[in-house]
């Protein structure tokens, strides 16, 4: 997919999202037909903006941690010293992806208790895999001629890594981070089943009180965030790829 959203749609979506978060009352007329017997149409057990920011914070912390660890691991297994781990790490990534996020979330609870922590752990573990896989692909498919040239120019292993390998692999790594963020945004909503403060709270409140307006607004805010963030990362990737002369 070359372009995800045309620019005017992107700006329109952003404006709509911000309007909804700052002035939810404007939209209550729109959502009113979805609720019965005068139930509230806009989530009223907490501030939507605060929940959105907490949601984003949870995803950001987990993804940041996952990015650092996954890239460090990918670098390690592609160096001579860690080469023995390369085949195993590939199969581990493959196996790890079969663990459902709900299971990870639920099993983290006895270790760390309810709240934000199990959500962070689940998001971190789940975010590791796409980033690691992509970083590995990026670092193992570098053009051999470039690597030869770098070696010929007398660069040390560390210089090659920092100046050549990581910049060249960065578009693919960014794609992994993008995937991980989008999965994280959706998975964080499930975190509310173990009492984490995320937008999932709105959806679950809606499911419990049979209020479709809550379910819809919680779901659509997360979806809008995911689309916008996906889009921003795609733009970043294109910029990185252009700089690396891969397009």
């Amino acid at each position: 997919m070359s372009r995800w959203l045309p620019p005017f749609l992107r700006l329109g979506l952003l404006a709509l999202l911000l309007a909804f978060l700052f002035r939810p009352a404007w939209f209550s007329g729109l959502l009113q037909p979805l609720v019965q017997d005068g139930a509230p149409a806009i989530y009223n057990q907490g501030d939507l903006l605060t929940l959105t920011l907490l949601h984003l914070r949870t995803v950001a912390i987990a993804t940041l941690g996952a990015t650092v660890v996954a890239i460090a691991l990918a670098v390690l297994v592609t160096r001579p010293i860690g080469a023995e781990f390369l085949p195993l790490s590939r199969s581990l990534v493959n196996i790890g992806q079969t663990f459902p996020p709900v299971a990870v979330l639920a099993l983290a609870v006895p270790a760390v208790g309810f709240g934000e922590k199990p959500t962070l752990i689940a998001l971190f573990l789940y975010g590791l895999l796409p980033i690691f896989e992509n970083a590995l692909t990026g670092l193992t498919t570098l053009p051999p001629s470039v690597m030869e040239a770098a070696r010929g120019a007398g660069m040390t292993g560390f210089q090659r890594l920092v100046r050549i390998e990581i910049p060249l692999a960065s578009p693919v790594m960014l794609a992994g981070i993008r995937l991980s963020v989008v999965i994280g945004l959706a998975t964080a909503t499930i975190g509310s089943t173990v009492a984490a403060k995320t937008l999932g709270e709105v959806i679950i409140a809606g499911l419990q009180s049979n209020n479709l307006a809550f379910v819809l607004q919680g779901g659509l805010v997360v979806a809008a965030l995911a689309v916008l963030i996906y889009d921003a990362f795609s733009a970043l990737e294109r910029a990185a790829a252009r700089r690396m002369g891969r397009i």
Partner: peptide, 24 residues
């Protein structure tokens, strides 16, 4: 493009919300 983009958007809706939205 149209089909893949719309299916992509479906994927961004969190699962608990999609399950809930379909109830109606």
């Amino acid at each position: 493009g149209a089909v893949l983009n719309s299916l992509n958007i479906v994927q961004t809706i969190p699962s608990i919300a999609l399950f809930g939205i379909l109830i109606a």
